[in-house]
Design a protein around this nucleic acid. Sequence first.
DNA 1: TTGTATGCGTTATCAC
DNA 2: GTGATAACGCATACAA
Lengths: 347, 347
Amino acid sequence: MGIAAKTNIKEIARLAGVSVATVSRVINNFDYVKPETRERVQKVMQEHNYIPSATARDLSFQRSEVVAVVVPDLKNPFFYGLIEGITRVAEKQHYQVLIFNTNEDAEKEYNILRAIRERNVAGILITAAGVRDERTGRILSEYQNSGTPVVLVDRFIEGGESLDTVMADNEAGSYEAVCELIRQGHERIAIIAGEKSLSPVYERELGYRRALTENGIRIREMYIAYGNQMADQSYKCMKRLMSLSKPPTAVFCGNNMMSLGAYRYMIEHDIRPGEDISMIGFDDINVLNIVGIPLSVVDRSEKEMGKKAMEMLLRHMKDADAKQDHVSVPTRLILRGSEKHRTIHSR
Amino acid sequence: MGIAAKTNIKEIARLAGVSVATVSRVINNFDYVKPETRERVQKVMQEHNYIPSATARDLSFQRSEVVAVVVPDLKNPFFYGLIEGITRVAEKQHYQVLIFNTNEDAEKEYNILRAIRERNVAGILITAAGVRDERTGRILSEYQNSGTPVVLVDRFIEGGESLDTVMADNEAGSYEAVCELIRQGHERIAIIAGEKSLSPVYERELGYRRALTENGIRIREMYIAYGNQMADQSYKCMKRLMSLSKPPTAVFCGNNMMSLGAYRYMIEHDIRPGEDISMIGFDDINVLNIVGIPLSVVDRSEKEMGKKAMEMLLRHMKDADAKQDHVSVPTRLILRGSEKHRTIHSR
DNA sequence: TTGTATGCGTTATCAC
DNA sequence: GTGATAACGCATACAA
């Protein structure tokens, strides 16, 4: 009856009048088991509500059906989309997902990565916090070299050159967005970029620079604001930008949280996006969408990224010789109105 | 070297010139190990970068340091906070967290709960989808009875009467909110309630009814709208409510997603919350907050709920005789403006 | 204080 | 086709 009955393979074997080896064969669907024997064993397993022990299987098999997912911020919706994509693919292949939150702390991340070693995970998916921390790159490479595949998601890291990656096409997405702003007639275009050391931040800035350059607009450093990935910092950046003698007439925000901070500053100061200023953000924000706030964004499907990442991991888990792979998920510019403006106070 | 060196306890024992038992004692900090021996063993472990196998430990110990967290919707921000609270407490106690998303599908939930049995999890935290599915209640009770504690979070379920629970004080929170609307002078107050079978929905409706009754306002069923927990449905509910010959002058929304749907309807139809209509939602929505949309809400700290839930689980895991416990997390009415109105078109 | 031997529940390698 | 039996890596009762 139910779970309480902790039957093991030995007990099933005894009851079915066969050996444990045979039971194991039935469990794992070996083809050379006599049909009658198979049925008899299956019947006993059913009757006793037998569930094999994954722990024992893992120990014997020297590999578990668990993957570790390490993310830097469990408050950011982007990562939930990512996790959703990951779990979606994982569950279909009967893999389970361990979640770890580093809170953008490289030290904590290192400890987590060490702790993960105890459990024999089949693979690791990580958006790293310690992108410049040599220990992070080293330990991840060690995993990879010892047969535990690793896929970097969203961020490159130093020392992780041998690892698989799933990234968004940040440069292109950014380029496209800024081009749109230029098309709207802007010249004083600012970017709120974020934490410099992160590769997506860097790449988005590159796209911004290329868009300006290719369109013959001089890049002015005062319009490039760095901060971290959080809304508060972005709010401050926006404040600084608007206090310039020639404030920008358009703003490109480097991620979802930063869009929110900037947006807040605008609202509080009666600067209406889509009218008084043009604005495009990176990463869609579902909630704004639902309430009908028309923020134009560069959307990258985080769910898609999660799926892709898990698929890459699976490929490596099933074929140890699988070659290194890099996937780039395309972005998509969604214009909802905030990229517009009434008049541009240029010059 | 690093990870590649898969040393085991036996190898360490050999190298340190002791038995495996002694090494095990050192690992687990037994006090009756001679200091010199301990040091020698530790040195060898260090040098060989030895990491004990959690799998083997779990098999021997017959219990793992992994807890399963089962939630119905990874897109709902409420669960982000919950998961964050859970992981925060879990990691301090060196527990790891397996995440499962049921997508509000009872069938899928049942399969997940069966799959979890394979792994020897130390406990289960669940916001159930199958609240009326007898299998859910049964399998969870079986877990509990066989020594794997279970804590229900946010939702009661049929057949789960023996389980620990962490709930918000939905009735009181709801009551308080509706009282505030009444204080604002409203009589035609609607509630967008959600999926009837869920206990929080039911309890919030109870609070709504009590508030009206105690204030001598007749309850009119046409002002009670049921749907599911999603924004789309809520949008439709709002539409229906506003098409009544005497539409409500105030609306209370049963959860965060539903607040968004209702809000959207209002915006689209130029009904401004806080001016043309009064509105209070259940569950805070951080994003709205950041962008400065002043939605008044009944806030319950989901992070707090997560922490409490994990703490309860730990108590049971450490003391098999711990008594059943029920925790109710208080709610807090946060007024930001949307509860106000300009004029009430009563009568 | 330390060592020996056995068990935990599987899988895998041999034989038969 | 099937059955013994040795791993897998660790914990622990019992001896010493």
